[in-house]
Amino acid sequence: MMERINEFYKNFGLPRLIIASFLILLCIAAAMVGLPLPALFSAVLVRFGMHGVLVLAMVPAIIAGIGLNFGLPLGILCGLLGGLISIELDLVGFNALATAILIAIPLAMLVGVAYGWLLNRVKGSEMMVATYVGFSAVSLMSIGWLLLPLYSPEIVWPIGRGIRTTIVLTGRYDKVLNNFLDFSIFGMHIPTGLLLFMLMICFLMWLFLRSSVGVAMKATGDNPRFATASGINVNKSRMIGTILSTVLGAVGIIVFSQSFGFIQLYQAPMFMGFGAVAAILIGGASVKKASITNVLIGTLLFQGMLVISLPVANKIMTLGSLAEISRIIISNGIILYALTQVSGGE
């Protein structure tokens, strides 16, 4: 029996255990201070669906052996551009959303090819290079947002030049997924479309990982030398992983924006990669291993914690920043923990 508990503990991992207990504690605290639990849970569900695809974008990168994809902003920028063009084309509703995604995907694939080419040349230092490629892409694109030839009055500043920092999606595709087939139960609002969409993408990823290409990718990440000896083209596999990750980043931010109701530009995407990385690590992934289960558990735990801790903290202490501070500490702490686990044996 002890052994089984031990085994369970080992598989579940200490960080996940801490976060899970913390979350349960938060729920109890929330109930005690009289916060409406159903409303909190619906908020958790929305955040879960919102962030799910972005977190899923980590999976192909980790599995292909690139490690934590801190360069996710590259994909995000493509998604944002897609989202803007769809407004520029004056589309609304599902059409707008679908168009945004359809424009973003080829863009992200192109960017992914370049990014993958780069990552294949910096093997062993991918994470650091990716971080700064992401940062500089965000800064470069900030110049882009100032100069891009987009004219829709919803997008550009009424006076001066360039695109607004925040673009309101009301009347465009605000919450079109969230509101698809949504219903309320026990006082909880279920964003059916959003959850379905996210689960569908997860399912597609699951199928992909069971295809011949997916299997090759997994082998590449697991042991590149083995992969070479098994006739797998390591660089190609890594390239596919990078492209997939970038595309998912693009799709992810569109899903995120439609649920959020706004498109945020300029410096906003800078640290979005970090949140996704933290979530999947909390879900039990490591720098070398990740699964769709890790994505689901991690997103739920991480977002659940963030959503519930904010009002709880506000109730207990009137300090709005406590939730934000704990987010910084937890997300970076988990990344540090994961890093010490890689080369700890050396």
Partner: peptide
């Protein structure tokens, strides 16, 4: 080829026995 470097090149250590056995055939023989 059965490699001399069993753990380094010969096996996917965190993958199932069955996948280890068939993966090269999947990739090369379809």
């Amino acid at each position: 080829f059965v490699s001399e470097d069993r753990r380094g090149m010969g096996l996917l250590l965190d993958t199932s026995i069955e996948m280890n056995i068939v993966i090269t055939s999947i990739q090369n023989k379809g």
